[in-house]
Structure formats: structure tokens, C-alpha cells
């Protein structure tokens, strides 16, 4: 019987950190098993899985199922930048609301540590939509999200006026204050 209400029965989170000895699936499995235990059910009851990950190369949902329970349920791998985890929740929520399943699992997992800019090729050869002969990051502006958003915030202030850097600092202060309340923060 499909109801309009969708309930969160269990939830879990891994500790923030670089986790050199854990791969993506270790982190996803830890969060999965702990949230399912929190809900008081097993993977057997789960009828749909949505797995959010941006930089792991895809197929995280299937790889997770192989570790924690390969029950033949539909899996949706989603990638949506900062909104990736929220998109996974939305996919499960909509599936439950549509009556496709009674229990669903939404997981979001990412490892960011250890990346580096790829090196230049031995001979210059234009590649891609900008006809670039090497990586742009650091040469034609920045591609990192903190840098991009810093510029968006500054452009907003420049265009509309009245948006003070004091305001941005207060948002940062508020967010860091919240992190001190999270025992899983690094």
C-alpha cells in the first residue's frame, strides 16, 4: 500500500578524513551497513538503491551491492556535483512515492584526496573544446570549486553591491561552528 509519507528509518555517516586504507566501496559499505542496522532491517528488504558519486568512475552502486548484498534490485548511479547525495535521496524518494518499492537505500560517497593535475604531453597538440595543448587549471583561471565559487560570490557583490565580505565570513563562521557539533567531523 503506497502512502504519501516517506519515512527515514535509519541513517549513518562515516568519519570525515582522507582514509588512505579504505577505498570508495569500504566507505559506502560502512555507511550502508550501519544505516540498515539503524533502521532495524537487512539488505533483503531494500527494493531500490540509488548511489551517488562524482569522481569514482561510475558503477558504484553495483560495486557496493557486490560487497553488501547482491539481491537483484534496481540500482541508479547518479552524479550531480555538490547535489549528488541529495539527488540519490530524491531518486529513492520518488521511487517510493511511485510505489515501486517499500524500502529504499540512498548512498553518497566520495574520495577527494590524492588527485593531481595531469602532466603536459611530450609534444603540443590542441585537444578539446578550447583547442588547449595542456590542462587549463592554474593557467587559465582556476577549476577548483572553492575558487570558482569565490569568484561567483565576488561577482555577485560587484554587480549588485551591498554584499559584504563580512557576510561571507559570517556564513563560514556559522558552518564551522556547526562542524564542531558533529563528532564525525575531522
Amino acid at each position: 500500500m503506497a502512502s504519501d509519507d516517506v519515512w527515514i528509518l535509519g541513517i549513518s555517516m562515516t568519519r570525515f578524513g582522507k582514509h588512505p586504507d579504505s577505498d570508495l566501496i569500504d566507505l559506502a559499505a560502512e555507511a550502508t551497513m550501519n544505516s540498515i542496522a539503524d533502521a532495524g532491517i537487512t539488505m533483503r528488504e531494500i527494493g531500490i538503491l540509488a548511489a551517488g558519486n562524482l569522481r569514482g568512475g561510475g558503477g558504484i552502486g553495483q560495486a557496493l551491492q557486490k560487497q553488501v548484498g547482491q539481491t537483484g534490485i534496481p540500482v541508479y548511479n547518479v552524479a550531480n556535483a555538490c547535489a549528488t547525495g541529495a539527488t540519490a535521496i530524491r531518486v529513492v524518494h520518488m521511487a517510493l512515492r511511485a510505489g515501486e518499492a517499500d524500502f529504499g537505500l540512498a548512498i553518497g560517497v566520495e574520495k577527494l584526496a590524492g588527485g593531481e593535475r595531469v602532466g603536459d604531453s611530450a609534444t603540443w597538440s590542441p585537444q578539446g573544446r578550447f583547442g588547449a595543448i595542456g590542462p587549463l587549471d592554474g593557467r587559465i583561471g582556476t577549476e577548483t570549486m572553492p575558487g570558482v565559487f569565490a569568484q561567483i560570490g565576488m561577482e555577485y557583490g560587484h554587480r549588485y553591491g551591498g554584499t559584504s565580505f563580512e557576510l561571507f565570513a559570517r556564513i563560514s563562521e556559522k558552518n564551522h561552528a556547526h562542524s564542531t557539533l558533529n563528532p564525525l567531523a575531522s
Binding site: 587549471d137 592554474g138 569565490a150 565576488m154
Partner: peptide, 10 residues
């Protein structure tokens, strides 16, 4: 129009 000083990068 906008700038940021990048101190940490890949």
C-alpha cells in the same frame, strides 16, 4: 569583475 587568490591547488 571577480578574482580569487588560489593558495591551494592540485
Amino acid at each position: 569583475r571577480a578574482f580569487t587568490i588560489v593558495a591551494h591547488a592540485a
